[in-house]
Design a protein around this nucleic acid. Structure first.
Length: 593
DNA sequence: ACCTTAGGCGCG
DNA sequence: AAAGCGCGCCTAAGGT
């Protein structure tokens, strides 16, 4: 059952649709529900296990969650439309052509503000959209037509026939899925794209649910940590005691009595006056010098960062009643990773992770996918030799053991360098031997890089494609003067590094989205059975955190592991590549790994 | 009194 | 230990 939910006057319109997006035959006219009645109506209809179709999950779901209504599944027209408008799997469809004509503005998620969004002022407000009514282009009929068009594009992805995803990839054989290879008539592609749309929509729900739940955050522990590093809380606008001490030390050592160490320009001049010839004030460059001022300067920078980014002001702004509730921005990164808005949710520094603490009677289960990106590369490239190395829990150790010509540390540097496109340094030097040992894996990312350099599109395993190159990009690659040509070549190489990384990072994001969705499904199932179970509270690219009653830990750990394996099978079939998760059951986040 | 950009650094 | 991908967000600095 498919239910379209759209904003209407002072409430919502509900319409039952077919799977294809036509009005359901035999169903009544669209049904108008007042704002006040909506949570009750939605809760009632949820019993029929519909897929809720809506313009943006963020417009509806947060308010429903505040009203105590949780839903099983949805279809986010904005997120799915953005994928379908650019995917190579649907590039031949009318939907993609229309998206091109409309311009990207409508097809892509709305622009993100750079400033943190303040927490909603009115927590009881049911609608995030203005009371005036639906936004332009988001009327009930427009959304229905949009859904129908997206479903049509999806049906046309790959070809008419279809086979189960698991049945095609049983062995590491056949051409790798990339670039121009294996492009024609691949029925498996439709299923993969469908999976991506479902996972993306599930991700949008999970993001709203995690924001609603929040990360358990002990303000008292956070303040203890700050006091330990910085001294007591200073008066507003003042430096903490420890930073004051370091400032006067630096002023003496650099013979600059008025130095503001927060000013890069002042700092640079002071360093030069003292014979410290750096070109920037970055940590790694400062570390080269042995001047006595360097150690306190690096200490200052470290602590100043803590104070500015995650100090008392941050605590006041972002933690309430023992919960940190950041906004996750699904689809916020071109590769399919999530971004976040407010509070730097995806950059919680190790220094303060001790403040993330389970409630009494609960544990934090922190699980991360070990060496996810290299393992995804093995699967994408179908490199059976590297797959053998990936059989082990430690892929890098496996590579070293296979005699690629270096130790574990070098194996890691070389492989990450291949994924990022390193050309110089140790990573660059190790590339030839890595290529000799694993021609398929290296060849795969090299092909992605060549595609980017020549302006082609690359695509993740589930069908998310790299953003189009700007108009005139190819022409700008042919330049008249040698200087312009050098610049054009540099831009092309940069694009190549981006597409090289995109296929791996993006396919890893595909995997992580499926992992999350599969985990959510399992946790919900357990809860429906009435069993105690944990809640997803945090997600960071290849890592999840579940806040879990102690008596449900074992069960949740199993769910996390099952979900990881399910994600692998969904993406790649039953291939002989492991995607192990490392799981820590802890009271506080700083004790995980 | 604002707004944008650059340098820097946190995370994966 | 350091140059190669993706982000958000702090302060300073340089606009308007």
């Amino acid at each position: 059952m498919y239910l379209l939910l759209s904003a209407h006057a002072d409430g919502a319109a509900l319409q039952e649709l077919t799977a294809e997006g036509a009005p359901s035959p035999g169903a009544s006219e669209p049904w108008l529900v007042s704002r006040a009645d909506l949570p009750g109506v939605v809760r009632q209809l949820e019993g029929r296990r519909p897929r809720w179709i809506w313009h943006r999950t963020q417009d509806w779901y947060p308010a429903l969650l505040r009203a105590g209504v949780e839903l099983e599944r949805c279809y986010d027209l904005t997120l799915c439309g953005a994928i379908l408008a650019h995917s190579e799997f649907t590039v031949h469809t009318e939907y993609a052509r229309n998206a091109e004509r409309r311009g990207q503005a409508e097809a892509l998620p709305p622009p993100r503000s750079l400033q943190p969004a303040p927490p909603p002022a009115d927590q009881d407000a049911l609608f995030e959209t203005p009371a005036a009514g639906p936004a332009d282009g988001a009327t009930q009929e427009a959304l229905r037509a949009e859904y129908a068009a997206q479903q049509e594009a999806l049906r046309e992805a790959g070809g008419p026939a279809s086979t189960p995803a698991g049945s095609t990839g049983g062995v590491l054989a056949g051409p790798p899925e990339s670039g121009t290879a294996a492009r024609e008539n691949d029925p498996d592609r439709r299923q993969r794209l469908q999976l991506l749309l479902a996972a993306e929509s599930a991700g949008a729900m999970i993001a709203a649910e995690m924001q609603h739940t929040g990360v358990p955050w002990r303000e008292d522990l956070h303040e203890q940590i700050l006091a330990g590093y910085l001294g007591p809380r200073p008066a507003f606008g003042h430096r903490p005691a420890r930073l004051e001490e370091l400032t006067s030390t630096l002023r003496q050592l650099l013979k600059s009595p008025a130095l503001n160490p927060d000013s890069p320009q002042e700092l640079m001049r002071a360093l030069h006056r003292n014979g410290i010839e750096v070109k920037s004030t970055r940590q790694w460059e400062l570390q080269e010098s042995s001047h006595p001022a360097i150690e306190p300067l690096l200490a200052y920078k470290k602590l100043a960062r803590l104070h500015a980014a995650n100090g008392w002001a941050w605590l006041d702004a972002w933690v309430n009643d023992g919960r940190f509730q950041p906004e996750y921005v699904v689809g916020g990164v071109v590769s399919g990773r999530w971004a976040s808005r407010g509070g730097g949710a995806l950059q919680i520094p190790r220094q303060i992770r001790g403040a993330v603490h389970a409630d009494p009677g609960y544990k934090l289960i922190v699980a991360d996918a070990s060496q996810l990106e290299p393992r995804v590369l093995v699967a994408l490239a179908r490199d059976s030799k590297m797959a053998e190395a990936a059989r082990d829990q430690d892929l890098y150790a496996g590579i070293a053991a296979q005699g690629f010509g270096g130790d574990r540390a070098q194996a890691k540097i070389a492989l990450l360098g291949a994924i990022y496109g390193a050309t110089t340094g140790e990573s660059g030097r190790l590339m030839p031997q890595l290529t000799r040992t694993y021609p398929r894996a290296v060849g795969f990312v090299e092909q992605a890089a060549r595609d980017g350099e020549t302006g082609k599109t690359v695509t993740t395993r589930l069908g998310r494609s790299s953003p189009p190159t700007p108009d005139g990009w190819l022409r700008s690659q042919q330049s008249a003067t040698a200087d312009e040509q050098r610049r054009a070549d540099a831009i092309a190489r940069s694009r190549g590094r981006f597409t090289r990384n995109f296929v791996v990072q993006g396919s890893a994001a595909d995997w992580a989205a499926c992992w999350l969705a599969e985990l959510r499904r399992r946790l919900r199932a357990r809860r429906a059975e009435g069993a105690p179970t944990g809640e997803l509270v945090f997600f960071l690219h290849d890592e999840v955190m579940v806040h879990c009653p102690e008596n449900a830990v074992e069960d949740c750990v199993r769910a996390i592991e099952e979900a990881a394996n399910a994600a692998k099978v969904l993406l790649f079939g039953r291939i002989p590549v492991e995607f192990p998760v490392s799981v820590a059951v802890v009271d506080s986040y700083d004790h995980a790994k």
